[in-house]
C-alpha cells in the first residue's frame, strides 16, 4: 500500500524533473527582468525630479494593481488579436511575471535607498562626491543588504506565481502534474508530487539568498547570525539594521 505513492513518483521522476527545470528557468529569467526593472524604477523613485518620480509611481501602482495572471493572458491572447504578432507563451509569461514582481521590487529598492541614514548622504556631500559615485560607492552597497531579505521573498513569490504558465500551455511543473494526473487518474498524487518539488525548489532559492545576505552583511561589518551550517541558512537572519555612522 505504502509503496504506491513512491512508485508513482519514481516512475514519473524524469518528467517532473523536466517540468521543474522549466519552472526554474522561468523563475530565473523573470527574476532577472524584475531585478533590472526594480533597480531602475526604484532609483527613479528616489530622485527629486517630479517626472522621474511620476514615471516610477505610475509603473509601481499599475503593475502592483494588476494580477500577473491577467497580464499574462493579455499578452498571450490579446496581442495576437490587435497586432499581427504573436508572443511566444514562455516569453509572455516571463514578461508578465517580471513586470509584476519588478513593481514590488522597485518599492523595496526605493524604500531601502531612503532608509540609508541621511547622514551618509551628508558625508558624501562633505567629500564632494557626484550623485553617481554616491549611489554606487556608498548608498547602494548599504541599501543592498536591506533589500536582500525582501528580494528573497519576492523570488519565492515569483517562483510560485510561475505556476500560472501552465494555464497558457507551458509545460512547467504544474502542467506536468496536471497531465500526469489526467493520464493516471491519480490526481492527488500527481499534484502532491508537484507540491513537494516546488517546496524543494523554494528551499534551494532560500539558501541562495541567505548566502548573498551573509556576504552583504559581512561587507557592512555586521556579524552573520550565530551558528553555522546549512540549517542556519534556513533560519531567518537575526541581524538588525545596526549600521554604524548613522544618525540616531
Amino acid at each position: 500500500m505504502g509503496s504506491i505513492p513512491v512508485d508513482f513518483f519514481i516512475d514519473r521522476f524524469p518528467l517532473y524533473l523536466e517540468g521543474a527545470g522549466t519552472t526554474f528557468t522561468i523563475t530565473v529569467l523573470g527574476t532577472a527582468l524584475a531585478f533590472v526593472l526594480a533597480m531602475v524604477i526604484g532609483v527613479l523613485g528616489t530622485l527629486r525630479n517630479p517626472v522621474a518620480r511620476g514615471v516610477a509611481s505610475f509603473y509601481t501602482e499599475t503593475f502592483r494593481g494588476i494580477a500577473a495572471l491577467v497580464l499574462m493572458f493579455w499578452m498571450a491572447f490579446s496581442i495576437p488579436q490587435i497586432t499581427p504578432y504573436e508572443l511566444d507563451v514562455t516569453f509572455a509569461a516571463v514578461l508578465a511575471l517580471g513586470l509584476n514582481v519588478g513593481a514590488y521590487g522597485a518599492e523595496v529598492v526605493r524604500a531601502s535607498i531612503n532608509a540609508v541614514p541621511k547622514a551618509q548622504t551628508e558625508a558624501t556631500i562633505a567629500l564632494n562626491m557626484t550623485w553617481a559615485r554616491r549611489m554606487r560607492l556608498v548608498i547602494l552597497p548599504q541599501a543592498w543588504a536591506q533589500m536582500l531579505p525582501t528580494f528573497g521573498n519576492l523570488v519565492i513569490e515569483l517562483m510560485k506565481a510561475s505556476a500560472i504558465v501552465s494555464l497558457i500551455g507551458v509545460t512547467d511543473l504544474t502542467q506536468v502534474a496536471r497531465l500526469q494526473g489526467q493520464a493516471s487518474g491519480q490526481t492527488i498524487l500527481a499534484f502532491g508530487s508537484a507540491l513537494v518539488m516546488y517546496f524543494v525548489i523554494a528551499q534551494v532559492l532560500i539558501v541562495g539568498v541567505r548566502l548573498l545576505e551573509r556576504r552583504a552583511n559581512r561587507r557592512l561589518g555586521r556579524t552573520p547570525p550565530a551558528g553555522g551550517g546549512l540549517l542556519a541558512l534556513l533560519r531567518p537572519p537575526t541581524v538588525g539594521a545596526t549600521a554604524t555612522g548613522g544618525a540616531r
Binding site: E122, A123, L137, R219, T244
Partner: peptide
C-alpha cells in the same frame, strides 16, 4: 556621528 561609510 562620524558618518563613516560602513561598507568600506
Amino acid at each position: 556621528q562620524f558618518n563613516l561609510f560602513p561598507n568600506m
